[in-house]
Design a protein around this nucleic acid. Sequence first.
DNA 1: TTAGCTGCAAAGATTTTGCACTCTA
DNA 2: TAGAGTGCAAAATCTTTGCAGCTAA
Lengths: 124, 124
Amino acid sequence: MPKKSVQRDIIRANILHRFDHPTAEMVWTSVRQTNPRVSLATVYRNLESLVREGEIHRFVVPNEPDHYDATQTEHIHAHCRECGQIFDIDVKLNKRLSERVKAIAGVEVDKVQLIATGVCQKCQ
Amino acid sequence: MPKKSVQRDIIRANILHRFDHPTAEMVWTSVRQTNPRVSLATVYRNLESLVREGEIHRFVVPNEPDHYDATQTEHIHAHCRECGQIFDIDVKLNKRLSERVKAIAGVEVDKVQLIATGVCQKCQ
DNA sequence: TTAGCTGCAAAGATTTTGCACTCTA
DNA sequence: TAGAGTGCAAAATCTTTGCAGCTAA
């Protein structure tokens, strides 16, 4: 169990209460508005800690730093390469897919990330 | 059209003739065995150029540098976090999925990347 | 000849880590 | 008060870029 800390509470509250899928730096920017002394390293450390505990997820985006996601239901991401916005798409494929991967490649899958890249309506 | 160059031919041949999904550095290591003077920057530049021309694809892997892939048929990747090996899984989901993303989020998708992370048989 | 490539080194971008200090349990 | 968390700066990692020289067209 991580020890309680002011910074941890702030960072945790921030990521849990927003609906975009911020990068560490985005969380940092937001957190600093009320708590200017929080360092980016602390944001990274606490986000990683929340990932370890399963409260949030970290995912890769092409040509971008990693993003974090507090949504717990199964879904995939669409990413607009123009404005950077990330959209949740409610698609369930983990179970069947994991079975298939296990059968074909022998890999015991514990994490599936799907990212669809394109251009959103506003940016077209 | 890119201009012909010895380095380009070597790098292109290397990535097209291997079946793993190497990172730029892996291509570099391989290429240097026969051509020690090729620089890593040139490998990156030529791989990017091949991506632009559609001969290969570049894809993200969690906690790893980007990988490149010469396979042209639609598929997804399974990644062993222990040994780093990447497996191709023949799964078609682009078309239906892209339609869904378009309908729900309004994103015109041109690239779908799915990566399933876990532990392979050998590493279990 | 000249526009594009290359190697090298440096810069950029992202993320992690060492260390001295602070705070929680 | 011991151990964990923090800020800061430095290091680590991956990738791109500036520049002077080389090469293909």
